[in-house]
Amino acid sequence: MSVEQTTRDDATLAALAGAVRPRRFGALYVAEHQLRAMRAYGWTIVIGGLGQPLLYLLGLGLGLASFLDAPVGFGPDGPVPYVTFVAPALLVTATISVTTEEFTYTVMSGFKWRRVFWGMNASPLAPGQVATGLVLAVAVRMAFVAVAYTALIAAFGAVGHLWSVAVLPLLGLLGGMAFGLPLLAYSAGLRDDAGQFAAVQRFVFTPMFLFSGTFYPLATLPTWLHWIGWVSPLWHASELGRAVSYAQPMSGATVAVHLGVLVALAAGGWVLARRVFVGRMHG
């Protein structure tokens, strides 16, 4: 019995009209809501977004650098300052750490603690739009972090080529999403946080941060640890960042592999995350 065959009364027509805008703009409504909710901790975001890079650049880039006996990073014309070497990796670490908060606790909150996703679910919004809106809002926060970080990196003179500041935030965003979207898919499937998020933080994020060639080239580590870099969005994005910032020598094929891994992780995570949202909200 299809709708087309029966005469449509005004209720049906009203329904058809009522969903036009939500179908088109739904994800933006969700993003708007999430960004408003972020305002509650807006100052934390701003101070953290500016303060953290400042501290890391000062502490590691300058303080620690003065104790290095040997150069760590190399451009086409020889060694580059240590702060220039670590800056891209620190930037990507910062965007990734946005997701360890926004794609974990915020998601659990939406489904379980504050339950706002269920409110959205009863409205004309579709589950996929809720996921998209959340991702958009997080992208905005990430973009702020990435731009602030890049500005400080430039202020420290920690880039090889100044034009690269136009590309670094984008790499930050890509790296952040390559880690974040698979995490979102995981979080959205959890019914309860029995320590999983803390485990992600301490057994995924921290080791990744420490062993992804962040502080020295991956080759410095024993070979049996290199796989951590290969699967780590942080390593792929950092390497690209170094290639962009000070032209760290890199073949075209390598660039393609780095980009390919990042895009695949982000896209795969995205598809999976939407599927989990739909399954959970319309199951």
């Binding site: 620690l64 290095l68 921290t206 080791p207 420490l210 062993f211 502080f215 410095t220």
Partner: peptide, 15 residues
């Protein structure tokens, strides 16, 4: 983790 990454890994550049 920190000890391995910083102490051992970075230590190779610091002496």
């Amino acid at each position: 983790f920190f000890l391995l990454a910083m102490g051992v890994g970075l230590g190779t550049y610091i002496g």
